Simulated scan of single mutants.
Amino acid sequence: MIKLKTVPVNKLAFKNHLSMIEQFSIKDFLFKWLGRPPEGLDDFLPLEYTESVFAKMEAKQGTSFLINEDERFRYATITEDNQIVIGILDSNDELKHRILSLDEVLAGKHL
C-alpha cells in the first residue's frame, strides 16, 4: 500500500474554483491511479464538483471508498501550486489531507 505524505491544512492553499479541465484531470488521474476499474470511475467512485469552502471533486453522499483499510476517501482537489491533494477521513472521522508525490503520479501506483 502507498503511504501518502500527510500535511497540515494550514500549509495548503486550495483553489476556490476548478476549471472543467482541472475537474476532468482529477477524475482522469483518479481513474488511472485506481488501476482503471473496468466499471469506470463513475460507478466505482462517483464524484461531484462542489465549491463549499474550496473547490473539490467530492465523493457522492453514501459512497464509502476505503484506503489503507481504515481510511475513507472524501475528496480530491488541486492546490494553488497545482499539487493533487486527497482528503481522507481516518478511523476517528478526523479529516486528513495528503499530497500525492510526483513519483507516485508518474509511476501510476494504485491506492
Rank of each mutant, 00 (worst) to 15 (best):
G35H: 07
E39N: 07
K5N: 10
L45G: 06
K60M: 13
P37K: 04
F73C: 03
Q61G: 06
Q83W: 07
T63V: 13
F65G: 00
V85H: 06
H17Q: 14
P37C: 04
K27H: 08
L89Q: 07
L89R: 03
T79D: 10
L45I: 06
S52K: 13
L111R: 05
R74F: 07
I78N: 01
R36I: 05
F44Q: 06
P8L: 10
P8I: 05
F31T: 08
G35V: 03
I67M: 07
V7Y: 04
E80M: 09
E39D: 09
H110R: 07
L45C: 09
V7Q: 07
H97Y: 15
S52E: 13
H110M: 03
Y75C: 14
A55F: 03
N68A: 13
F24H: 14
L100A: 01
D93Y: 13
R98C: 15
E22V: 10
L34C: 14
L95M: 14
L100R: 01
L12G: 10
K5S: 08
M57A: 09
G62R: 01
W33S: 14
D90I: 00
H17D: 12
A76W: 00
F29I: 12
L47N: 07
W33L: 06
Y49Q: 11
I26R: 02
K3S: 12
S101I: 03
L66I: 08
E80D: 06
I67A: 02
F73A: 02
I99H: 03
L95H: 04
D42H: 10
F29M: 15
G108R: 02
I88E: 02
A107L: 06
P37T: 08
L45V: 12
D90G: 02
P8N: 14
L95A: 10
E94M: 04
Q61Y: 05
D103I: 05
N16K: 15
S52H: 14
D28G: 15
L89Y: 13
F73Y: 12
F54R: 01
Q61N: 07
L89T: 01
D103E: 12
E48K: 11
L18S: 03
I67W: 00
L100G: 00
M57G: 04
R74N: 11
F14M: 08
D90H: 01
K32H: 06
H17E: 12
I78K: 04
G62Y: 02
H110L: 04
L4E: 03
E48C: 11
L34Q: 13
L12S: 14
M20H: 09
K96M: 10
L18D: 01
I78E: 01
A13Q: 15
K11S: 15
K27G: 09
A107Q: 07
D103K: 10
D81V: 03
K15W: 04
Y49I: 08
M1K: 11
M57S: 12
A59E: 04
E80N: 10
R98G: 05
G108K: 03
E51V: 11
I84L: 15
H110N: 12
G108D: 03
I99Y: 04
L106A: 06
E104D: 11
M57Y: 00
